[in-house]
Design a protein around this nucleic acid. Structure first.
Length: 305
DNA sequence: AGCGGTCAAGTTGAT
DNA sequence: ATCAACTTGACCGCT
């Protein structure tokens, strides 16, 4: 009987390992000729595919169970003026193949890969242009997710706009309208300012979208649910799939001025006891990146009996 | 080579 | 009104 324990996940980048993802700016790319722009974007994309493979190999070699892929591995892909189709890049077929090979490596080695689209992806905005933009970004990321075997795209609930209930209704309605490639991967996470687990769990139950439980956000933005209750409710939304949690520690302690700021490392005391012994993924959101993941992994093993 | 200003996009809350 | 914060500082251009 294998021992159930959380797998720990690394987010996007490395503190010490010489593995780096590249990006660029719209201002710079917009100044180039179209060909010059595509050449630069091609170089970046090709290098990012290599970096992804290196990142996954590092995780595999060090017992890190999941890796969050940064959203800009194909920079400016959905930019209204500068966007492009990946296959139109120089060496586009090879670039796509390299991402697919990285995904195959992840799948073969039981490495979970995932994306956390950034703050501009807002599914419940009253501004339809914002929602359309969000959908377009999610469709792009769903394609990348297919290449890389990523099973989740994590988004927050969005804004409250002074009317939380209406905002949650819009969220649910817009989730229903997503294409299958996006919908099948979409998951929703509580945030540190607006939407708590208690706010989002009903939307998750109604739409069938799983709930990502961020215990640090929950401690910043509480709702009356205990950590244990939120954990159980979150797990229930995942069905047969492996649940996903987020952990961080406050930069200057829970009594500090801004507990939402992330520390370099995780304080073991912040890691919920009720997560131990479960087959779940816990993404470590800490500034020391792989060093924080490895330290926490060691600490969890030491307390295991 | 080093360094400072800048960076597509949304929303909130502190200042 | 401005701006930092959010999953993550990296990139560009000037000296």
């Amino acid at each position: 009987m294998p021992l159930n324990r959380p797998r720990l996940g690394l987010c996007c980048i490395f503190a010490e390992q010489p593995i780096a993802f590249r990006k660029t700016t719209a201002a710079y790319i917009g100044r180039q000729s179209r060909k010059g722009a595509l050449d630069k974007l091609s170089d970046i994309a090709a290098q990012n595919a290599v970096a992804l493979r290196q990142a996954l190999e590092f995780c595999r070699a060090n017992g890190i169970g999941s890796f969050r892929i940064n959203n800009e591995v194909l920079p400016l892909r959905t930019h209204p003026q500068l966007g492009y189709s990946p296959l139109k890049l120089r060496g586009g077929k090879h670039i796509v193949a390299a991402f697919r090979e990285a995904g195959a490596f992840a799948a073969e080695n039981d490495l979970r890969t995932l994306f956390h689209p950034d703050q501009y992806v807002v599914l419940n905005s009253p501004n339809s242009a914002v929602v359309e933009n969000a959908k377009s970004e999610l469709e792009h990321l769903a394609e990348l997710a297919e290449w890389t075997h990523a099973d989740v795209l994590i988004v927050h609930g969005g804004g409250a706009y002074g009317e939380k209930d209406a905002a949650l209704d819009r969220l649910a309605a817009n989730i229903e309208s997503l294409p299958t490639e996006v919908r099948s991967r979409l998951v929703i996470e509580n945030d540190e300012r607006v939407f708590t687990p208690a706010d989002l769990l009903p939307v998750c139950r109604a739409t069938g979208v799983p709930f990502v439980y961020d215990v640090h956000h929950h401690r910043c933005n509480a709702d009356g649910l205990t950590v244990e209750a939120a954990t159980e409710a979150a797990v229930a939304t995942w069905g047969d799939r492996e649940p996903l949690f987020h952990i961080s520690s406050p930069l200057e302690g829970w009594m500090g001025p801004k507990p939402s700021r992330h520390h370099d490392y995780i304080d073991l005391a912040d890691f919920p006891d009720c997560w131990k012994g479960r087959k779940v993924t816990v993404e470590v959101e800490a500034k020391a990146k792989e060093l924080a993941v490895l330290r926490l992994m060691g600490q969890l093993k030491m307390v295991e009996v």
